[in-house]
Design a protein around this nucleic acid. Structure first.
Length: 465
RNA sequence: GUCCCCAUCGUCUAGAGGCCUAGGACACCUCCCUUUCACGGAGGCGACCGGGGUUCGAAUCCCCGUGGGGACGCCA
């Protein structure tokens, strides 16, 4: 049987890091087994679902490169099918109408909580042989409830957590259709997973408690029960649960923050899953290695520093043209337009080893394309009066020097030797004048890229005043 | 409250009874490289939640405790 997995987000917000990892694992599992990965949008909560959120999820998936083979399917477009199944269940006595008002249910819940019980529906409208049902109240639209088994236990072998069993006595008759006729989550999931032939349900472990209900429903429908794999949640950098208020951001925010998708993917892959001591691998490798046996059942804390490390790694590896296109955009967003010279790829080749993210990288090379603001402290420290003669003689030497790193280096050496000073005595003030700050790659390489004209011009700043 | 789940360095993790004086990675510290800052290289620091069992032997299996998390919606 071919593997079919799915990612089924509800479009009530963006695709966050936890959802992205769930999608990644489902995707990788399908790829590993040469199966299909299906995208399904669970939009039955009409009040909270938005088209913007759908788009945000699609954007996130696309940025990460998690491609789906079927879908996106929208549950709101499958209403007819749900109704058909509900009608059939009603006919077969597998579901029934319940005329309890919300107030009634709230009161029941409160009362049960107060007496230390697990709140659940008491089955007052559940038909039983010989049982007298209450009189149908006028003007109340009923909900439809599933007739859940009352005895026995539901047990499944969770592919991540191992055997889990929950007694049916813990469950109640869940509502599968609201008073307005729209079906509810647990029901739609079941019908969809069934219709779509899902073989492995890989999802967050906040769904563990839904699983026995879904299994009961599936069995009532005569459907094959898929395998389940429940992934533990991802905690924030501070160990706290992620929420809108607290650290949960869209995966596309990582793009804005200068992360490469391959870095985010690699990081996510290692969060809760491992392959021995392997830390760095691409998605092709991941799809070969991925399995559910090596998923950690416990929650994982997000660690931005490790993500940064991976990002820096992938920046060093990235194709220079691709990097240039990205960095040019970031620069232009800051009002810096990239000139033809020096060529951005060559500049990035010099700088990519020192950046943790693309924004840093862009900021660090901006001085090639516009006069940088000078770090005053660095200026005061390095550009003292006694270096002015050095700058002057270097300037002289540079006028007719061949413009190569070697020749520039020779000129620097010559000035330093003649003045009997250490190399940094000249290199540091140059750094400050040319780049605006005290840190840069090898100064001769910087000068070479900057070009003769700009170099001399910036060098002459203190000489002129 | 009830039910379910989880528990190895600060963090991500390796670990399927002997290979464990517990391995790797990030972070941190030291040194090396060096033209500053990085990069890179070499070292270092640092953990099996507690208690009982089972066993010749337990980080690994069982039980209890403790701690953490999740679920208990006409949300998904």
């Amino acid at each position: 049987m071919t593997v079919r997995t799915r990612f089924a987000p509800s479009p009530t917000g963006f695709l966050h890091i936890g959802g992205a990892r769930t999608a990644l694992f489902s995707w990788a599992y399908a790829r590993k087994h040469a199966g299909q990965f299906i995208l399904r949008i669970e939009d039955t909560d009409v009040a909270r679902s938005t088209p913007e959120a759908v788009q945000a999820i699609l954007d996130g998936m696309n940025w990460l490169g998690l491609s789906w083979d079927e879908g996106p399917f929208y549950q709101m477009q499958r209403m007819e099918r749900y109704r058909e199944v509900i009608d059939q269940m009603l006919t077969e006595g597998k579901a029934y109408r319940c005329y309890c008002s919300r107030e009634e249910l709230d009161a029941l819940r409160e009362q049960q909580m107060a007496s230390g019980l697990k709140p659940r529906y008491d089955g007052r409208w559940r038909p039983e042989p010989g049982k007298l049902l209450p009189e149908v109240p006028a003007g109340v639209e009923p909900v439809i409830r599933f007739r859940n088994p009352q005895a026995g236990v539901v047990e499944w072998n969770d592919l991540v957590k191992g055997s889990i069993s929950i007694a049916n006595s813990e469950l109640d008759d869940l509502i599968i259709a609201r008073a307005d006729g729209t079906p509810t989550y647990n029901f739609c999931v079941v019908v969809d997973d069934w219709d779509m032939g899902i073989t492995q349900v890989i999802r967050g472990d906040d769904h563990v408690n839904n699983t026995p209900r879904q299994i009961n429903l599936l069995q009532a429908l005569g459907a094959t029960v898929p395998q389940y794999a429940h992934l533990s949640m991802i905690l924030g950098d501070d160990g706290q649960k992620l929420s809108k208020r607290h650290g949960a951001v869209s995966v596309t925010q990582y793009h804005d923050d200068g992360y490469l998708p391959e870095a985010v993917l690699n990081y996510l892959a290692r969060l809760g899953w491992s392959h021995g001591d392997d830390e760095i691998f691409d998605m092709a490798q991941f799809c070969q290695w991925f399995d559910l046996d090596h998923i950690t059942p416990s929650a994982a804390q997000f660690n931005t520093e490790k993500l940064n490390w991976l990002n820096a790694h992938y920046i060093k590896l990235a194709d220079l043209e691709r990097l240039s296109a990205d960095v040019a955009q970031r620069l232009s967003a800051q009002g810096v337009s990239v000139a033809a010279e020096p060529a951005l790829p060559a500049v990035l080749a010099l700088y990519r080893e020192r950046a943790n993210n693309l924004n840093e990288l862009a900021a660090s090379v901006a001085y090639f394309y516009r006069m940088p603001p000078i770090d005053e402290a660095a200026y005061a420290k390095h550009v003292s009066a006694d270096v002015l003669p050095l700058l002057q003689s270097l300037s002289d030497a540079l006028q007719q020097a061949e413009w190569t790193v070697e020749a520039i280096h020779a000129a620097l050496d010559q000035v330093v030797k003649a003045a009997e000073v250490k190399f940094p005595k000249l290199a540091m003030p140059l750094r400050v004048l040319l780049t605006g700050g005290a840190q840069s790659p090898s100064i001769d390489a910087v000068m070479c890229l900057l070009g003769r004209e700009t170099t001399l011009q910036r060098m002459h700043l203190p000489l002129a005043s």
